[in-house]
Write a protein that binds this DNA or RNA. Structure first.
Lengths: 199, 199
DNA sequence: CAATGTTTGTCGGTTACACGACAAACGTTG
DNA sequence: CAACGTTTGTCGTGTAACCGACAAACATTG
């Protein structure tokens, strides 16, 4: 049984997963996800097929891990961190989601090619957003009424849902403006867990 | 003790060597060969330092293998094959050597940086040229008087020596013209082993 | 000179990867 | 329907890669 991507110390495992994710990313540029067999991915990664299953249960799990890794990489490149003290600090996270979805392959856009994996990609992105939000929420005192996991899950779903609509528009407003709109929607949600405001 | 690059079946070994050679190539773009430690190269290749020594005796051996591999890759990309039947078939090989030396890092050129490894690079290139010539010579009946190994070694040395002079010139003639010049010099050498010409 | 730190090359013990083989779950074709 | 080829997921057996530790060679510093 494959173990979580986090907390992998052995460099061989890190390298193998990096190779597999890189291979999938490359192959998706020329072929659709459904056309790819595990053998194809393993070959492109110069990894044995059996080794693939030591890391992921199937190719969907690999896709999920790849999306998560790429999104987290984007956040890291921009030094985005959700500081839970202020709900509006979620702005950069929303902005990152916009940019990620607008370039990420296999998306609502005009191409029918990878339409079938959109739910999986969506779930991975939501999970990644949730994780970022949660790490910020966990840094402060527990909220009254709602568990931070609940808040993070709800906000992440809201953000992804909004951004997906935005990415599917014909003439979408600029991302900056759109971020503000979404922020207004989710601020109350995040603030629900915020410590009492000092007036 | 490390084994020859040829005849390596295990994909793990192929991959490790590819990673090591790629890492060295990358590192040489920003640092000189002398500044690099085995640890640096191993890190960049995401390979353990001890594993490095399972493949190469030291970093010089890696450099040699890398040069050889790159030169052979160039030949393969151009589909260059020395067909021993005609001495002038060495033309493309000479041309490849010109192009390779004029772009290869660590060379006579103005940069003093990697001057110290020039002999090693030269030896690797000579060995690569020799191997190509020999594979062509071996395909025909054995020569009278001189062993094919001797012919190939001499011709390879001559070609490299000539091309090195050419690459070090201030205003070198175009490669095409220069190839003809060198060809005239080495043709008698290669023809010495040629089967009797039909008149 | 001695003391210190870095790099080198080597050596067992542990772990991940390669590989062939296998049964099961699919299409597809006749 | 049966026969066929492909892909999937799993398993046991070798082997290569990882790792810490070590002594030796070397450079730097006081």
């Amino acid at each position: 049984m494959p173990i979580s991507d986090c907390a992998v110390k052995d460099p061989r495992m890190r390298r193998t997963r990096r190779l597999l994710q890189g291979a999938l990313r490359t192959l998706l540029e020329s072929r659709s996800f459904d056309e790819l067999s595990v053998q194809d991915i393993a070959d492109a990664a110069t990894v044995n097929r059996a080794t693939f299953y030591d890391h992921y249960t199937d190719k969907h799990a690999l896709l999920e891990a790849m999306i998560a890794a790429e999104f987290h990489q984007l956040l890291e490149d921009r030094q985005v961190r959700f500081d839970g003290t202020c709900a509006s600090a979620a702005g950069p996270v929303i902005h990152a989601a916009c940019d990620f979805l607008s370039v990420c392959s296999g998306h609502p856009g005009p191409d029918q090619k990878n339409r079938s994996i959109e739910p999986l990609v969506g779930a991975a992105v939501v999970a990644a957003i949730r994780r970022v939000l949660l790490s910020g929420l966990a840094a402060r005192k527990p909220a009254r009424g709602a568990a931070p996991e609940l808040i993070a899950g709800a906000a992440a779903g809201a953000i992804y849902g909004a951004v997906k609509e935005w990415a599917g528009r014909r003439n979408p407003p600029p991302a900056e403006k759109f971020v503000g709109t979404v922020l207004k929607l989710v601020e109350p949600m995040l603030a629900a867990a915020a410590p009492r405001e000092r007036k």
